[in-house]
């Protein structure tokens, strides 16, 4: 019968060497986009030729913020919404680290919105991967700031009436130097985008529009992961094409692609340069205790 054809495990998945095998299978629901985002991050990291030991992952609270717990690297699980602030401190403490922030839409856009726009304004060299599933998945399906207008959630039984945040455009306006958005079904494009984000010296923001069949899908007539990814395939439009279309045609569509790639002076380098000019040292660690300062 059909089940007999499924062979037992002989060789390993190529991404398994980065994962904590004793913790698998992970906690995410069947078909959740977080696992795909994790795979594409590894693919992008391999393509960017970044040393895995030099990566530090920071996350806040939420489903997507559980990702660093499954990765065999230094990780920091922080307070709700404050992942980018902790990452800023980590980057300033050790500017040689490649700091990657895994965050969700509730974490980055709702409670940590202020930290997100100010990190983008300063252009600090972080790679923020925001997994946007349009709903608060961990707490039971409440409407988040990125839920599309008219979508249902446990706090919006008659449909959300507010205009959602366009996170990629928000970060472009705040001054991020690399911003892109893809959905979880655009695996190769997403991996390429993460590669560019990791290599970019400045604030890089990659928004991954992800499926949440358990809470978003169940209340919005997209009950299975397959229905959700079909909806993403149908509704996503590449940015170059979307620029030529009218606003009315774009209602309900997901604009994907690279929004900006415009490197500019980076925050930690500027601070180190200033410190070297004024005090002769690149970094002033515990400067209050130094006699000559």
């Amino acid at each position: 019968m059909s089940n007999d054809k499924v062979t037992t495990q002989r060789s390993e998945n190529p991404f398994m060497k980065y994962l904590r095998k004793d913790r698998l299978p992970h906690i995410f629901c069947a078909g959740c986009g977080n696992g795909t985002a994790l795979n594409t991050f590894f693919r992008g990291m391999e393509a960017a030729k970044i040393d895995f030991d030099n990566i530090a992952m920071v996350s806040g609270i939420g489903c997507s913020s559980r990702i660093p717990g499954y990765v065999k690297c230094d990780s920091l699980h922080t307070a709700h919404g404050r992942a980018i602030s902790f990452a800023t401190g980590l980057k300033m403490g050790n500017p040689n680290l490649d700091v990657v922030v895994f965050t969700g839409d509730g974490d980055a856009a709702a409670i940590g919105g202020n930290h997100l726009i100010h990190a983008a304004r300063r252009n600090i060299n972080l790679t923020v991967i925001c997994i946007n599933n349009n709903i608060y998945g961990m707490t039971g399906g409440q409407i988040s700031p990125t839920s599309p207008k008219g979508s249902f959630g446990s706090t919006a039984p008659y449909g959300s009436i507010d205009k959602p945040f366009d996170l990629a455009e928000l970060v472009v306006a705040a001054g991020g130097s690399y911003v892109s958005r893809w959905t979880a079904i655009h695996g190769l494009q997403l991996a390429n985008s993460i590669k560019k984000a990791l290599n970019n010296n400045g604030f890089s923001f990659v928004e991954v529009v992800s499926q949440c069949p358990t809470y978003f899908g169940r209340r919005n007539k997209l009950r299975t992961p397959v229905e959700m990814i079909k909806a993403f395939k149908e509704n996503s439009i590449v940015k170059k094409k979307a620029d030529k279309m009218d606003q009315e045609e774009l209602i309900g569509k997901i604009i994907v692609g690279e929004f900006v790639n415009n490197p500019r002076p980076e925050f930690s380098e500027n601070i180190c340069k200033l410190s070297e000019e004024k005090c002769g040292k690149v970094q002033l660690v515990k400067s209050a205790y130094l006699n000559e300062f």
Binding site: P25, R43, L188
Partner: peptide, 25 residues
Amino acid sequence: PYLDNEKKCRKCHLCELLCPDQAIT
């Protein structure tokens, strides 16, 4: 899932990348 037409596979590794549970090799 089981392999219905394994001969058709062209080793694009897309399933490996998109599998959220790292189950496919």
